[in-house]
Simulated scan of single mutants.
Amino acid sequence: MTSLALAGARIFDGDVWHDGHALLIENGKVSGIVAESALAPGQAVRNASGTMIVPGFIDLQVNGGGGIMLDGNSGVAGIEAICRAHAMFGTTGLLPTLITDTPEATAAAVAAGIEAARIGVPGFLGLHLEGPHLSTARKGAHDPALIRPMRDADLAKLVAARRHFQVLMTTLAPENVTPEQVSKLAAGGVKVSLGHSDTDCKTALAYVQAGASLVTHLFNAMSPLGHREPGLVGAALESGALWVGLIADGVHVDPVAIRAALKAKTGPARIFAVTDAMSTIGTDMASFTLNGRTIHRQDGRLTLDDGTLAGADIDMVSTVAYLHRTVGLSLDEALRMASLYPAEAVGIGGFKGRLGTGKDADFVELTDALTVASTWIGGEAVHEASSD
C-alpha cells in the first residue's frame, strides 16, 4: 500500500480552496484532504510549498501533440506521445481526436486506441472521431472528398468500439446523419456531439431529443447566431442538455463572444474548454502535413495555404490563463472549465474533475504564474518541470 501527502500548497478541490491542508493519495486515489497538523507521524510528505494543487485538466478534443497527429499510422506509440506532450501542460485525461479520414485510417486509429486502453496508457480516456459524417458547407480544414453520410456499418462499428473505451465520442452533422442513427449511437453509449454543420436551431434541438449531448467548438464550423435563425449556436446556448466545447486561444473566438456565450448558456449543462490542439504542442515545429496539405504555424495560428484555421496551437494551462486573465473569469471557474465540466460532459465526473475522497489522484501543481510545476496521473508524477 503506497501513501503520500502533498503539503504546503493551496488546494482547490473543484469547489473550494483549502489552506493549511494536505492532499492524501493512496493507491492511485485521493484518500482525503486533511489539516497538515493532523498528518500521522511517519507519513511520507512531499513539500509542495509555493504552489496550487488543482484537479487535472481534461481535454475532449486533441488532434495531436509532441510532433504526432492521430491518424491511421500513429499506433499506440503515437497515442502515448500525444498524452505525454499534453501532460507537460497539466492535462491528465484526454481524447485523441481523429479528423475526417478514410475508413481504413479510421479503423487503424480505433484499433490503436483499443490497444492503448488495454495497456492503460496514462492520460488516455478514449477517442473522439471528428467526422467523417459532417457538412461539406462547414468542413473547415476537413477534406471534403472524405466527408460522407453515415451508413449502418459505420454505426455498428462505433457501437462495437465503445465497449473498449471509457469514452467514445463522435462529432457529426445532421446533414449526414439521421435522428434514428443518433438514437442508436446514444443507446450504445457513444457520446454524440453536433458540429461542422449549417443546421437550423429547430433541427439541432430535435437531434438533442434523439440523443446528442454535446456541441463541438462553439462558433467555429457552424453558421453565426442569427436573430431570425439562431442555428447550432442558438441551440447550444438554449438547450440545458447540451455540453458545449469552446476553443479559448484568442484566435478562434473573440473574448467578447466568449463572455456573451457564458452569460447566455442555459444549464445544467455548461460550456467547457477544449484545445483542438495539433501536433505542434510541445515542439518548435513551423509546419506539418494534414491529409496531404501543409499546415502553417505562425503567431499562435495554424492555417492552410488559403488562411483557413486548421486546429489550434494552444495547451490547456495556457487556455486556463487566457480564460482567467483575458476573458476575466475567476480562477476557480477557469479551472472548472478545464477539468470538472469536461468530465461531467462525458459522464466521468464521478471519479475525475474533482479532488475528493475516492476520486482518481489526477492533479496538477501550478505556480502563481499559472505554469505547470508537476502533473500527476493515478497518484504518480508523470511530469516534473524541475527535471526538464
Rank of each mutant, 00 (worst) to 15 (best):
H128V: 11
L214F: 07
M169C: 15
A212Y: 06
P144Q: 12
A204L: 04
A108S: 13
T136Q: 12
V182Y: 00
A161V: 12
E104P: 13
L218E: 06
P132I: 07
Q181P: 05
S183N: 03
P96R: 02
R118D: 09
T97F: 12
T216C: 11
F219P: 09
G211S: 01
K202F: 10
T102E: 11
E104S: 15
A111N: 10
T199Q: 07
L214M: 14
R163K: 15
A141W: 11
H86I: 04
H86F: 05
L95N: 01
S135E: 04
M88Y: 04
M88F: 07
N176G: 14
L185Q: 02
K157R: 15
T97G: 05
L125I: 02
A87F: 05
A107F: 04
F89G: 06
V177L: 04
T199F: 06
D154Q: 08
P179L: 02
F124I: 05
T102V: 14
H217I: 14
H142M: 12
I99S: 13
K191G: 05
H196I: 06
D143W: 08
K157M: 14
M150D: 11
G123W: 02
D152N: 13
Q209C: 04
E115T: 15
G113M: 09
S197N: 05
T136D: 09
G140R: 13
Q181Y: 01
G120Y: 01
